[in-house]
């Protein structure tokens, strides 16, 4: 695996206009092709980190180096929100086509690019359906397809599976890992689930709140591909225990 960093945050702090300090002195690196997870209680600034990496927000102090901040026009960054964030008035095809359309792609090019992505997420027969006609899991798949269609280098995911049921979530975790390996993506994944963090990531940064900062780093050394049997292994349980302890320490200083 390549170790050239795809994302670098150097001593970043973020204070909102209201005076609320969201992040204090956050430094992190994500290597190209790495699966990095930010884990922490709500209000710890996990989402703010993602927005800074996406170039949707600027740091108060410090610097952010990422494809989105270095070469904004390239659409090398994709963002997946907790909600599928689809356009309810557009069908599946048009929703996935959005980044291509905004970049001025022709209809033929959209078709050529969307067909394989639709197949990847398993929604080929639903290209003409509207979001309201799909289940929650399927809508999230559309959202993932829209993120993948530009062939991004960096994929930012803000608790994407938090609202889904356990079975759907496990399947999407599995699929996400497959796409990550196949496409050599750099993923920065935000979650508050210890199990999800362990199952997916190579490295987990544990964050604390008020102000948001990185407190600990935990490596998950289990090899990929990770099968569902990984979830019941001793290694998995030990990693979960380590992360849970780190999370407890992160919350120890903060009022509940």
């Amino acid at each position: 695996m390549n170790t050239r960093p795809a994302v670098v945050l150097d001593d970043v702090s973020k204070t909102f206009d209201s005076g609320l300090q969201a992040l204090a002195s956050v430094s992190l690196q994500a290597a190209s092709g790495e699966f990095l997870t930010l884990l922490g209680p709500s209000g710890c600034g996990k989402s703010s980190v993602l927005k800074l990496i996406a170039g949707l927000d600027t740091p108060t102090t410090g610097s952010v180096i990422s494809p989105a901040t270095q070469a904004p026009g390239e659409a090398a960054t994709a963002f997946v929100f907790q909600d599928p964030t689809l356009m309810p008035w557009a069908n599946v095809f048009d929703n996935i086509a959005l980044p291509l359309r905004l970049a001025g792609a022709s209809r033929e090019m959209m078709r050529a690019r969307i067909a394989p992505v639709l197949a990847t997420v398993g929604l080929t027969e639903f290209a003409g359906s509207h979001p309201a006609q799909l289940s929650g899991g399927m809508r999230m798949r559309v959202s993932l397809a829209r993120a993948l269609v530009t062939q991004p280098r960096v994929l930012l995911m803000d608790e994407p599976f938090a609202a889904l049921d356990e079975i759907t979530r496990a399947r999407l975790n599995q699929d996400l890992l497959a796409w990550w390996i196949e496409r050599q993506l750099t993923v920065v994944f935000v979650t508050h689930s210890v199990y999800e963090a362990v199952f997916l990531s190579q490295r987990v940064l544990v964050m604390g709140a008020r102000p948001g900062r990185i407190l600990e780093e935990v490596e998950i050394t289990a090899p990929y591909p990770r099968a569902t049997t990984f979830r019941t292994s001793l290694e998995f349980q030990q990693a979960c225990a380590r992360l849970t302890a780190a999370l407890d320490r992160a919350q120890a200083g903060a009022p509940a």
Binding site: A54, G73, A78, R101, L102
Partner: peptide, 17 residues
Amino acid sequence: DPNLADLFRLYRATRWQ
């Protein structure tokens, strides 16, 4: 939807788009 608006910004949508 503010997230959708963010997405338009991420993909550099023009005012007209």
